[in-house]
């Protein structure tokens, strides 16, 4: 998945300024950065949700030349949050990820997807009665149903996630991040906007650090998540350490003022 010279204007202000972005199949690519740096805007431009100038390629095809159903066959997008207009059950929502003309085995996919996100038995519950984190996992199950196999006929499929773990507890954060690793390990591509830098360091193959509408740094977690990069983009000291066994960076932020005891 490639994007060239992406520019986005919201009102009179330029939110993205000539961004060039590349993500490879078989990898988890994380987009990180402070609030308002343009992470979600970049994602929404690349998925065609907002008008942009520039070019976006998916498997070397310009996405602008593809019909919605052609795109849906190779790309699933999980939005940040979704409110549903009518009282659908969980299973009915997940089934929206199915396309017409499926085999009997494929019709079981919604239940298997719910199992994968840890929502076995939730099928008949009303979507709007679930907690925010559960709703988010239902949406992920819907997207997984849509692009169940990471590679079809040699063509990789893409899982695009906007803050997939934002309202999840730590256990389910791992469930979801493990799913992304599994999807990429089997040949699919994953692009995710992330806030949690530690999870990003643990699960991402490539990190794209955004700052004020452009890419400040990109590369492996070790290369991007450095004291200097983070201090500059986030505007506060964020000392980075590495885990002893494999050198994965991690942050243990310190309060600037000690607690009065």
């Amino acid at each position: 998945m490639q994007a060239f010279d992406i520019e986005v204007n919201l009102g009179k202000s330029r939110v993205l300024n000539g961004v060039n972005f590349t993500a490879k199949p078989g990898e988890v690519t994380a987009i990180v950065g402070p609030n308002g740096s343009g992470k979600t805007t970049l994602l929404r431009a690349m998925t065609g949700e907002i008008p942009y100038s520039g070019r976006v390629l998916l498997n070397n095809t310009n996405v602008a030349s593809l019909k919605p159903w052609q795109l849906a066959a190779i790309r699933g997008v999980q939005p940040q949050s979704t409110t549903i207009a009518f009282p659908f059950t969980v299973l009915e929502i997940v089934r929206l990820g199915l396309t017409a003309g499926l085999s009997a085995a494929e019709k079981e996919l919604p239940l298997r997807a719910l199992e994968k996100v840890g929502l076995t038995g939730f099928g008949t519950r009303m979507y709007q009665d679930l907690s925010g984190g559960e709703q988010q996992r239902v949406q992920l199950a819907r997207v997984l149903t849509q692009i169940w196999r990471p590679v079809v006929d040699g063509t990789p499929r893409w899982l695009i996630l906007d803050e997939p773990v934002a309202s999840l507890d730590i256990g389910h954060q791992f469930t979801v991040m493990d799913l992304t690793r599994d999807f990429s390990a089997r040949g699919g591509g994953v692009v995710a906007v992330m806030h949690d830098l530690n999870l990003t360091a643990m699960f991402a193959d490539k990190v794209v650090l955004m700052d004020a509408g452009h890419i400040a740094a990109q590369g492996s977690p070790q290369a991007v998540l450095t004291d200097a990069n983070l201090a500059q983009t986030y505007g506060c000291p964020l000392p980075v350490s590495t885990t002893p066994h494999d050198g994965t960076p991690f942050l243990l932020p310190q309060a600037r003022h000690a607690r009065v005891t």
Binding site: R44, T47, G48, E49, K67, P68, W69, L71, A72, A73, R75, G76, V77, P79, T82, T83, I84, A85, F86, F88, I93, L96, G97, T99, A100, R142, Q146
Partner: peptide
């Protein structure tokens, strides 16, 4: 019918599941 079901997710999400909104 499928399009209207998809629209319940919002227009953007409906497009992402392959509906010509």
């Amino acid at each position: 019918a499928r399009g209207l079901n998809g629209l319940a997710l919002g227009e953007a999400a409906a497009g992402h599941i392959g509906i010509s909104v």
